[in-house]
């Protein structure tokens, strides 16, 4: 059956130049133009943004909870990726 209501979109807002777009929330709209217009009216009424991305929610793919262990835990013990892993004498100064 064809859906009668407007599809769901995810809205990402850049709060000021130089920052990344960040997920602000969702809304319904029939097309991208209106999704952007609505996003402006819904999520930037208080000067929250300078740029907006919208994407239809169905196009977002995500990790599953069941994958969490294999996806993210293996990095927990790879402390050699962090600067504090390496001993440098204080005399060397900031590095």
């Amino acid at each position: 059956m064809e859906r009668k209501d407007w599809p769901l979109w995810e809205v990402f807002v850049r709060s000021k130049a130089g920052l990344s777009h960040k997920h602000a929330g969702s809304l319904h709209a029939p097309d991208a133009e209106m999704a952007i217009s609505n996003a402006r009216d819904v999520y930037t009424r208080r000067n929250e943004g300078v740029s907006i991305w919208v994407v239809e929610s169905k196009y977002i793919h995500s990790t599953q909870e069941s994958d969490v262990e294999s996806m993210f835990d293996p990095n927990e013990d790879k402390i050699y990726r962090h600067p504090t892993f390496y001993d440098i004498p204080d005399e060397v100064g900031h590095m």
Partner: peptide, 11 residues
């Protein structure tokens, strides 16, 4: 006609 439209028209 829709919540989003209410917000837009009030703007």
């Amino acid at each position: 006609p829709e919540l989003e439209e209410d917000i837009a028209i009030i703007n």
